[in-house]
Design a binder for these strands. Sequence first.
DNA 1: CAGTGAGCGAGCTTCCGCTTGACTT
Length: 565
Amino acid sequence: MKRLIIVESPTKAKTIKKLLGDSYKVVASFGHVVDLPTDRMGVDIGGTFDPEFCVIKGKAKIISELKRLCREADEVYFASDPDREGEAIAWHLKRIIGLDNKVLRITFNEISKEAIEEALKKPRDIDLNLVGSYLARRVLDRIFGYSLSPLLWRRFKSGLSAGRVQSVALKLICDREREIRNFKVKEYYRVKVKLVDELKREFFTYVTRYRGKKVDKIESEELARGIANLIKSGSIYLFDVIEKLKKEKPPPPFTTSTLQQSANSMLGYPVSLTMRIAQDLYEGLDIPGFGRRSLITYMRTDSTRISEKAAKSLKDFVRNLYGDEYVGKIKPRNVRFKNVQDSHEAIRPVNVFLKPDDISGRVKKEHWKLYELIHRRSVASSMSEAKILVKTFLFRLDPFDLELETKRQLLVFDGFYRVWRTQGFDEDLSLTKGRKVEVVDLEVEKEKTEPPPRFTEASLIKVLDEKGVGRPSTYAVIISTLLKRGYVERKKKTLVPTELGIRVCELLELLFPDLMDVKFTSQMEEGLDRIASGESSWKDVVKVFYDRFEWDYRKAMEAVKNNDI
DNA sequence: CAGTGAGCGAGCTTCCGCTTGACTT
């Protein structure tokens, strides 16, 4: 009995092969093998909406090889990812290979011997509802992209592009730029007082209230100076100390988006570099003394889930290194329940016990740094909560009705902060309630309100991820598209819209306000969910969205042709 | 007669999402 398993990725194939031994042949399709044609719409717009699928350039060889292997096999299992695109890949393969009788679909959320064997026991048919949701997604993206882009060629210049994802990303950047440009800088004053505690340590406080009113940001310089003068003629005493115990939860393990964010802000890696290195770590490196090793799990994921086995290893690791009290109490509660398609685990080390120190100097510095980051984050995610005591010291000024305040964040128990420190903490102050405090220095500070910051690659991806726009495999591509089209430029670490970017964005906002709203994708996702659950047919959903679009589009094309806009 | 230049027409660009190598810089 010859049995064949087809998956998307050659690395996944290799792993499964190792787990199952010789009884199965495991091969990869290298992602999608068919898609809409690139040189034309390829969709029967306004009619049946039937898509025209073609073999993707360069994939013909893979297909013929798969066909050959399928012919030789008695049973064929499609084991692509358990999500929308995975189901679509299986569906396309089945159609193109054309061997209906012996084709079976299996899915598993974890690449382990048990999970795969379990899946092999209960193969199912291809889920046509899920495939329908893919078809709707694919067709709508094509219609929007291949209609809007030519509009821009006509209005601006050849080669430009627009689409559901990239145009929303562009709008986020342009909106922020507008906010910055329209920002009215406000000046204000603060009265800053340097005091000394009972151990002669200096610290700052700010005046917060005067005659029952908040005065932490004072508009008039005179008032600020007046308050400062009061302090000169009065005496400050500690009125009260308010204590609040705060528990800080550890961060979840990395997803693609959070890895890109952390690597960008902490290591300074552009998103594209992070993905290239992560791919290397995933596929495996030759490490002197260790042989060829895959260091991390799959790097394109939006799940924070971790396999039970890995979770146990992480806890053992923490217990060995830091002791029981550092082990996280709760099970992985960091799972996000939105439209998580949850086909892959979070990004974590394959083996936590392979410490970054062990491979230091044996892999490239860039690779080492990213592995260290992933390792540390995974360890932190399974550690205990930190406990922070927030102490608010309230001072008063005798004999005036004036209040000063200073806050101290004291680390009571570091917990996960032991390995994942994102903020600093303070030392306690030695002060006694009711006792007078000596003033060392007094200052009226002039401050300015700051406009919001420009997006960095990291902060843009954070927003896109939160809004559900784009997928892990496309975050990096979105940014490079905006750069390639000349819509956006890199300045230092930030993304700044160009004149062209702003004009394109304004035109699209004017003509297609629906599409340019970040809510559009989530509305579309709702429609896709209805298809997946069998409530709607994919063509009905496409029709609804298309009709909405078509009306705007006709008007828009007319206006652009007549040079009205 | 050969070279130049204006003017015209044809052909191309483009989406999002899944995956690696095979290219060049």
